[in-house]
Amino acid sequence: MSASSATSTAGIPIHEALCRWVFSSIGKKTIVAVTGILLVLFVTGHMLGNFTIYFGPDLINSYAKHLRDLGPFLWVIRLGLLAVVFLHIFFTMLLWKENATARPQKYAVGDPIKTTVFARTMRLTGLIVLAFVIFHLGHFTLLIFNPSWAHLDTELHGETVHDVYRMVVLGFSNPVVSAFYIISLGLLAFHLSHGIGSLFQTLGLTTRKMRPVYEAVARVYAWALFVGYSSIPISILIFGLGKNTIK
C-alpha cells in the first residue's frame, strides 16, 4: 500500500473532524436544536412538577423535598442545565453574528415573505425569556427579593420542610409578578412555536408531507405549555387557590 492511500484511509484526527462539524453551519444549528430539545424536556418536566400544586400543599412540598434530597446530584442537573443554556445561547449568537455579516447591505423595502412572526422574533423572545429565567431563579430559588421566604416552614409527615406551596401562593399573589410571569411564558410559547417545529427540520426528520404536521403539533405543544404554566398564577390570583394558607 502506498503512503498516500494509507493517509487517505486514516482521514483527519477525530477531534479535528468533530471541531469541523461543530463549527459548520449545520453543526452549529444541530447543537442549538439538540440543546433546544433538552430545554423543552426540562420546561415540560418543570411544568408537570408545578402541577403538584393543584393537589394541595403536601404533594408539592414533598416533591420539592425530594428534589432537595438529591443533594450533589441536584447540582449536577443544575450545572448541566446551565451548560445546555449556555451552549444554546452561545451557538445562537454565533449564528446570528454570521448571518448578520452574510448580508452587509439590507433591503430598503422589507417583506417578511413567508417567515412567521415567531421565527423572526426568536432572538428577542429568547433573550427576554433568559431575563425572565434569571428573575425567576432570583424569585423562587435564590429568594433575593424575599429572603424571609427561606423561613416559610411547614410540617410534612412529621418533618419540618420548606413550605414551597405557601411561597408560590405568596409570590403569585402579587399581580405584577404574575403578569410578568404570564407575559414571559407567552414569549416562551412564541419562541417554541418556531423552535420546536424547526428542530425537526434541523435534525433532518422532516419530509415534505410531515413538516406541516410537525409544525402544527409543535405550535399546539408550545401553547399548551403556556396554558399549563399560566394556569397556576391565574388560579392563585383570580380563583384564590391556596388563599387560606397565607392569611
Binding site: 453551519s25 449545520i26 454570521e98 452574510a102 413567508k114 417567515t115 421565527a119 417545529g197 424547526s198 427540520q201
Partner: peptide, 8 residues
Amino acid sequence: GNCSNYYA
C-alpha cells in the same frame, strides 16, 4: 449565512 428554517 446559516439556515434558520424561515422557509422564505
